[in-house]
């Protein structure tokens, strides 16, 4: 069930250049089920900014009624978010959307988790839940440069982890798709979140595999009422049928929607 709650800031940690990890506490944590769902944050009272901001759930800690998000301080909203201190409150609407289907990967099977930049965070909760189910996980994480890398060790604790950077300052130089190709990684299911060109490349690279992609789109309501975040469906790319990224997604099976 979707809830709106004033959640308490437990911690705010700078992980990398402009990248922050924010831990919030609230009862709505107990509504969070699937990895890949997101919350819609009203960052400040008043109109600066006015609209909510969608941020993925990076980790669910039900025992403490807490959850974590990892975000890049970029525009006005996320910059203000990075100023929140422990003890402050933030207005959270969520959990929203449909996350990654974890039951698609069976015990003993291998899941490949591919993340790009601020698309990496939701893969962490996904990885934890897959490992709990006895699924073997391999991570390929892409970043701009070494200064933007975060959570490498945490992912490595869950399973094999490869990092790629655009400038080669950490891990392999190049794109995540290059890494997958070069290492010839074999897998049963692929889950990915990141920039659209990356998702497109993965969709094309593995047309016969089970592939699930998490999309980003500018949002208004975040719950499916305003038609801001709509995309065409794969079986009717020019027609009237549509999916809403916020309420039908943000995770879709490859080919289900037009990227």
């Amino acid at each position: 069930m979707i809830r709106q709650e004033q959640c308490k800031v437990i911690s705010q940690i700078k992980l990398a250049e402009n990248i922050y990890e924010l831990t919030l506490q609230g009862e709505l944590v107990h509504e969070m089920k699937e990895p890949g769902q997101f919350v819609h944050l009203k960052i400040s009272e008043g109109y600066d900014p006015m609209l909510r901001r969608p941020i993925s759930i990076a980790e669910i800690l039900p025992d403490e009624s807490q959850f974590k998000m990892i975000y890049r301080a970029e525009g006005r909203g996320t910059a203000l978010l990075s100023e929140k201190k422990p003890g402050d409150y933030t207005d959270v609407l969520g959990p929203l959307g449909n996350g990654f289907p974890i039951s698609v990967a069976g015990r003993g099977e291998t899941a490949l988790l591919v993340g790009g930049g601020i698309g990496v965070p939701p893969l962490y909760e996904l990885s934890k839940q897959l490992v709990n189910r006895g699924v073997k996980v391999i991570h390929v994480l892409g970043f701009q440069s070494a200064s933007a890398v975060f959570y490498e060790e945490k992912f490595a604790r869950q399973g094999e982890t490869f990092v790629a950077t655009a400038d080669g300052s950490a891990g392999t130089k190049g794109f995540v798709t290059d890494v997958i190709k070069r290492l010839n990684i074999d897998f049963d299911v692929l889950y990915s979140c990141g920039p659209t060109p990356m998702l497109k490349a993965l969709e094309n690279q593995f047309p016969h595999k089970k592939v699930f992609l998490s999309l980003e789109e500018r949002m208004g309501c975040g719950i499916g009422a305003c038609f801001a975040c709509v995309c065409h469906t794969g079986d009717d790319p020019e027609g009237y049928s549509y999916k809403k990224v916020c309420s039908d997604g943000p995770v879709f099976k490859a080919g289900e929607v037009v990227l």
């Binding site: 109109y47 305003c226 038609f227 995309c231 065409h232 549509y242």
Partner: peptide, 28 residues
Amino acid sequence: EPRFGNPTPRVAETSAGMLNAIGLQNPG
């Protein structure tokens, strides 16, 4: 008739407001 509406991005924030160009998307 059903309408798909405009391409995205369809919304943008402004000072104390927002712009939308949904384009009357509806199922008909």
